[in-house]
Design a binder for these strands. Structure first.
Length: 936
RNA sequence: GGGCCUAUAGCUCAGUUUUAGGUUAGAGCGCACGCCUGAUAAGCGUGAGGUCGGAGGUUCGAAUCCUCCUAGGCCCA
């Protein structure tokens, strides 16, 4: 007789194989069609809101794993906060302006900067950004991310552009903006400023010259005194440079305050150089060691003077940390208009940002000696002049890495141009920003230190760019007296225009059409004005998103609860947002900042084309499904670098299957269970079932707390572990007999189903923020009536199944004992080969008195160990070594175990070995099954 | 070169700070071996894996505190 038909075997259509790649789109469709995210928001309409403000990704390429990771983390938060009872309106955004797109567009059109009218470039840029916004939006959606995809914020929206301009004007009218020269990369051939991204480094042959700067009489007098020497012959300070043409712009020479310098006599000349360069110089200049007169620290020389090598003027001696012993003489010639470091140190010493070179690389006509000459021609003239005046100590040429223009491939120069700045000090922006982040919570906590140390050191913010794809610096300048209009009243019309038509009118309309009628200069009364040509740094665009989004959209709120980005954004968006917000609102735009690391390969190295270790999310979706990417995001601790590799993914797929299959088993065994009628109250449940439910409520607590703390890897680990241990290994394995073999409506079976019901209900909700597709899949396959049409409309479970401390301890002891009992069973199976299934085993146990209370219920242990017979004995007879196992526990003192094969016959229905099998009316069956069969 | 951060079994993570540094360092997976064949491209069990990146130091005692080094990441120069 085949008894299988009399069993209550699991039934479900929920497939074991996830087939994620194929099935995921169906759930996406379901969410979209049923407007699930909108429904969630509607359901939480009156709930307290949680504002996670999306940092806008740049719309110029497909998403990569980093962008995917970031958005999935945000999605996990949106979903978990929502299921924890908050209203979470999530407005995605895109950063649209800026150089990378403008460059890409120029490249695609095959034009150089300035070759096309700004409006044409701008329109092409807009199209380009739109294209990638649409691509990225679909890619984000494909990952299962919930958001208001139909109403994102774009920094190129007219309304947003108007906000950018308005916020800039707030800085302007509060006197936090100023204009000053600053060196930038400059291509004299293309007659344009270059961004760092437009610079290529290539080998270039330059002059290498050592130039003497003669001490002034006063300085020499001081030095004689200072070093206690008497030298009346000329003393010179030796510097090294590869750009003789910057010497006309020289305003200072810099020593490193920490280095030692020497006064030496070399070829009858008195010179000053760094001690650490002497031997290198001897080799380089092919000279013998000099005679050393004196050694000194340069601090005392600060603010003393030397003579310019060929102009009738003086140059200042200053101190600068960036001077090194790597090359040259340890003393650096400073031209603040022609180098970044020169500029910075120039600001410190209040030097002029002096630029004698025009935009095409020619000296202005009035400059002595080199006026009107191109810088390369000037190099020759300057060399001649130096020789003539005996200021050239040594001349050579070197080949070194030098910046070139990526378009015309010519060498470029550093040249100061007027730029706009937001002052860190005018209105105490730095101090205010530092003060405000004290109230911000950082995860991880070191983020605060990182952000504040950047704020402490950063220079004034250069916000102007000489480009067209962006929001203009809306400033009018009086054409007569040069006065800038600062009051907002002059700009209301411009802002309104931008709101309606975008920024194009600024580029095409004359200023009198943008200004209010009859505007005249408040200073000189002149009616004509010039528009500023530069545009704003894109970091300003996204930096004011609190104004363009949080303040603008009614369901949002300023400040936000959370900003969540990669750790690079300490210098980026966290930073610019803070400055913009503090500078105009006086407070930080966020209450909490969460940062994640970067995606790296198995060895912890960054992903790069050259290393060939780049993994694309698109490929992973195709091979594994988006769900596995989501699981990966959750499983890794994002506070550090986040590794990804084939092995990691394989492990995750396996873990995924375990979770899925466990749920499948629960579903399959609840096909005839109606929670409304069949649920058994916790108090009435048997002990083991109560213990599992207690463990379940511990899991729920832990998982909910971990979501709150944004520790998603804990969520993943806990859920997975619960499926493996409490469910699969314990209650499913042990109670399977009840499910299959007892009467369908029996207490034992319903009790087990009750546990299954709670476990499944909890798991599906707890996993939903991470395993969104699978949770929805499970939800749709629940065999009983559902409270909502989507799992995302439900709340996290809040069951609390408590046991007394005594009960908990007892069960921990039971499990400890169980582990010990399984060991001799395994020996019986593997070594002695006397049993296969544990059901074939009989176990006899001798134990110390302290263990007796746990072991006195024989039938419980038969059930709990799934064996044929368990007996507690006072004494164990000598075992037959071939046919029995005798085992003394090492872990639990005083526990001796004897295992042998049972002689009981197997019940053909439930496969248990029972003494009564063969003695009943139906000899195939055990007593229990006999009764069940009779009942059926 | 500077600032910040990271380094625990093959993999992913606990344990380290603020409940004071304390006996043989934990979990799950994977692996090996065995079992089951009524979750079956499933399930159960047992076992082997770590000088806690390296070297010093503090201490009776350190994965945990200090110093240095190595490798890697982010941001600057």
């Amino acid at each position: 007789m085949d008894w299988k038909g009399t069993l209550n075997l699991p039934k479900t259509d929920f497939p074991m194989k996830a087939n994620l790649t194929e099935r995921e789109p169906k759930f996406l469709e379901f969410w979209e069609k049923e407007k699930i995210y909108q429904r969630i928001l509607k359901k939480r309409a009156n709930a307290p809101s949680y504002i996670l403000h999306d940092g806008p990704p740049y719309a110029n390429e497909h998403i990569h794993l980093g962008t995917a990771l970031n958005k999935i983390l945000k999605d996990i938060i949106v979903k978990s906060k929502s299921m924890a009872g908050y209203k979470v309106p999530f407005i995605p955004g895109w950063d649209c302006h800026g150089l990378p797109i403008e460059l890409k567009v120029e490249q695609e059109l095959g034009v150089k900067r300035g070759e096309l009218p700004p409006l044409m470039i701008r329109s092409a840029c807009k199209k380009y950004a739109e294209k990638y916004i649409n691509i990225q939006r679909e890619e984000f959606k494909r990952l299962g991310v919930f958001a208001k995809w139909d109403t994102p914020y774009l920094t190129m929206d007219f309304s947003y552009e108007a906000v950018i301009a308005r916020e800039f004007l707030r800085f302007l009218e509060t006197d936090q903006v100023y204009r000053r020269k600053k060196p930038v990369f400059w291509c004299p051939n293309c007659v344009t400023a270059l961004a760092e991204a437009e610079v290529e480094y290539e080998l270039h042959k330059s002059p290498s010259i050592y130039v003497k700067f003669l001490l002034t009489e006063e300085t020499q007098k001081f030095l004689n005194n200072f070093l206690n020497i008497k030298i009346f012959e000329p003393i010179s300070i030796l510097i090294w440079t590869t750009t003789p043409w910057t010497l006309p712009a020289n305003l200072a020479i810099a020593f490193n305050p920490d280095l030692d310098y020497l006064l030496i006599k070399w070829d009858e000349e008195y010179l000053i150089v760094a001690e650490g360069r002497i031997s290198a110089l001897c080799a380089e200049l092919n000279k013998d060691l000099p005679k050393i007169i004196s050694r000194f620290k340069p601090k005392e020389l600060e603010n003393k003077k030397v003579y310019h090598p060929f102009y009738e003027k003086e140059s200042l001696i200053i101190l600068a940390d960036f001077v090194t012993l790597e090359t040259g003489t340890g003393i650096v010639h400073i031209a603040p208009g022609h180098g970044e470091e020169d500029y910075q140190i120039g600001l410190k010493y209040n030097l002029e940002i002096y630029v004698p070179v025009d935009q095409e690389g020619n000296f202005y006509p009035h400059i002595p000696l080199v006026g009107g000459l191109n810088i390369y021609k000037a190099n020759e003239i300057i060399l001649e002049a130096l020789k003539k005046r005996e200021k050239l100590f040594y001349y050579d040429t070197i080949e070194h890495s030098y910046p070139h223009c990526w378009r015309c491939k010519n060498p470029i120069i550093f040249r100061a141009e007027y730029q706009w700045f937001i002052s860190m000090s005018a209105k105490n922006l730095r101090e205010k920003a530092l003060k405000n982040i004290e109230n911000v919570k950082f995860i991880p906590s070191w983020g605060k230190n990182r952000l504040s140390s950047m704020l402490e050191k950063r220079p004034d913010w250069c916000i102007s760019r000489q480009r067209v794809w962006g929001v203009p610096l809306t400033v009018f300048k009086c054409s007569n007296c040069g006065e800038y209009l600062k009051e907002y009243k002059y700009y209301e019309k411009v802002i309104k225009t931008i709101e309606k038509e975008g920024c194009d009118p600024w580029f095409e309309k004359p200023s009198n059409e943008l200004l209010p009628q009859n505007t005249t200069c408040p200073k000189c009364g002149n009616p004509n004005f010039e528009k500023e040509k530069d545009i704003l740094d894109v970091w300003f665009d996204s930096g004011v998103s609190f104004a363009g989004v949080l303040e603008k959209i009614p369901e949002l709120r300023f400040p936000a609860d959370l900003y969540l980005e990669g750790s690079d954004q300490h210098r980026g968006w966290f930073h610019s947002s803070l400055l913009c917000s503090v500078g105009t609102r006086g407070v930080a735009p966020y209450k909490e900042i969460l940062t994640h690391g970067f995606v790296v390969d198995a060895q912890g190295r960054k992903m790069s084309k050259s290393l060939g270790n780049v993994i694309h999310p698109q490929d992973l979706i195709e091979e594994y499904g988006a769900e596995i990417i989501r699981l990966w995001v959750s499983a890794e601790d994002y506070k550090n670098d986040i590794k990804i590799s084939k092995e990691i993914l394989t492990r995750l797929v396996e873990a995924y299957r375990k979770i899925r299959n466990t749920c499948r088993f629960l579903i399959g065994n609840l096909y005839d269970f109606n929670p409304k009628k069949d649920l058994i109250s916790f108090e009435k449940l048997p002990e083991f079932e109560r213990y599992i439910l207690y463990r379940l409520s511990k899991l729920i607590d832990k998982v909910k707390k971990s979501y709150e703390k944004f520790e998603f890897h804990i969520v993943y680990h806990e859920i997975h572990r619960f499926c493996v241990i409490e469910l699969s290994s314990l209650i499913i394995d042990i109670n399977r007999d009840y499910l299959y073999c007892e009467k369908p409506k029996s207490f034992k079976r319903r009790a087990t189903q009750t546990v299954f019901y709670y476990a499944l209900d909890s798991l599906v909700k707890l996993m939903a923020p991470i395993l969104s597709f699978t949770a929805e899949d499970i939800w749709q396959n629940l065999p009983y009536e559902k409270e909502e049409i989507s799992v995302f409309l439900t709340d996290f479970p809040s069951y609390s199944f408590e046991l007394t401390e005594k009960e908990i301890q007892k069960w921990e002891k039971y499990l400890e004992l169980r582990t010990e009992f399984l060991k001799p069973l395994e020996i019986a199976r593997k070594d002695k080969k006397i049993i296969g299934s544990s059901l074939e085993a009989e176990m006899f146990v001798k134990a110390d008195s302290n263990l007796i209370p746990y072991l006195s219920n024989n039938s419980f242990w038969e059930y709990f160990l799934m064996i044929a017979k368990f007996e507690l004995k006072d004494f164990l007879p000598k075992p037959n070594k071939n046919k029995e196992v005798y085992y003394i526990s090492e872990e639990i003192k005083g526990l001796e175990i004897n295992v042998k094969a049972t002689s009981f016959k197997k019940c053909e229905r439930c496969w248990q070995r029972r003494p009564e099998v063969g003695t009943l009316e139906i000899p195939d069956l055990c007593q229990r099954c006999y009764e069940v069969i009779k009942f059926l």
